[in-house]
Design a protein around this nucleic acid. Structure first.
Lengths: 147, 147
DNA sequence: CAATGGATGATAATGATTATCATTCCCATA
DNA sequence: TATGGGAATGATAATCATTATCATCCATTG
């Protein structure tokens, strides 16, 4: 909490630990969509000894703190992503063959406007309190396209 | 294949079986999002003896035949939905608390236009062959809203 | 009727994630 | 500085959804 550069963001959190820092460092370094196992593998190269359970626990913890977002793209494992304020809002292209995930932030302005409108009307109509949205395109990436 | 009213749609398929018919019947009767277990429970009331493995196998089979769609809304089990030609294209509202899924087809025209445009440009830009898309809103349904 | 290939049911196996629990660590207070 | 308590951790068992295996069954064709 003190001296690690995140003080502002943690009001009602638990301890700031090396595990949590190490996990954030991984995201800072590799910037992209990482699964729990990606993070685990990456950490175990440098600092040994962190258990996989701690990785899962702290990914969830960091998500609760608002530092990470979690995505479930169909099959397989969940993906986590750093919530970077400087980063544009973006959506995902997911390859159905290899599972690769591509971010895109083009056209998002147009999308966002529409989505905001829709959101407003939908929450009224269905008495649904909308907190977030997720738009994905599924298909085949260039590597997998040739079957 | 003969006499059950689906002949046209099955060219290169395997046998048409009572299991497959039974599963489709469940969807016809209950019309909505059903998990494998929903289907299993529902079938075991009337016709006994179908195993859960057969349910999974045939849900997948029916999806390959284009009769069902499969959705993964984050946690929990996959949901299957009847592909009804008469039914409008729709998207989903998903309650983060209870997992309830609400369909909506309002505003979908506006969405679709934007999505088609985006799709075209994205596939060019990222050399990605887009096959489908999925837009979900996450939040709290009316029952869960009061915490 | 025998052979063939798909379909099925029971169940084992898998993979991701969560729960459990004993131990350790950190910090505040005595 | 010793101590007590709550949070964090690692190892591992448990869970849950789904898939794989395999022996059997069934319908069709030769």
């Amino acid at each position: 909490m003190r001296g690690h550069g995140h003080g502002r963001r943690f009001r009602k959190m638990g301890k700031w630990t090396v595990s949590r820092q190490a996990i954030l460092d991984v995201f800072a370094k590799k910037s992209g969509h990482l699964t729990a196992d990606d993070v685990y593998m990456c950490i175990r190269k440098n600092s040994p000894g962190m258990g996989i359970a701690t990785v899962y626990r702290n990914l969830e913890f960091l998500r609760e703190q608002g530092l990470l977002s979690k995505y479930n793209f169909g099959e397989g494992s969940a993906h986590y992503e750093l919530n970077d304020d400087e980063r544009e809002h973006h959506h995902h292209l997911i390859c159905k063959s290899c599972g690769k995930v591509i971010d895109y932030s083009e056209f998002v302005d147009r999308e966002l406007k529409l989505i905001k409108d829709t959101e407003k009307e939908l929450s009224k109509k269905h008495k649904f309190d909308i907190e977030s949205h997720e738009l994905c395109f599924y298909g085949k990436c260039s590597s997998c396209a040739g079957r």
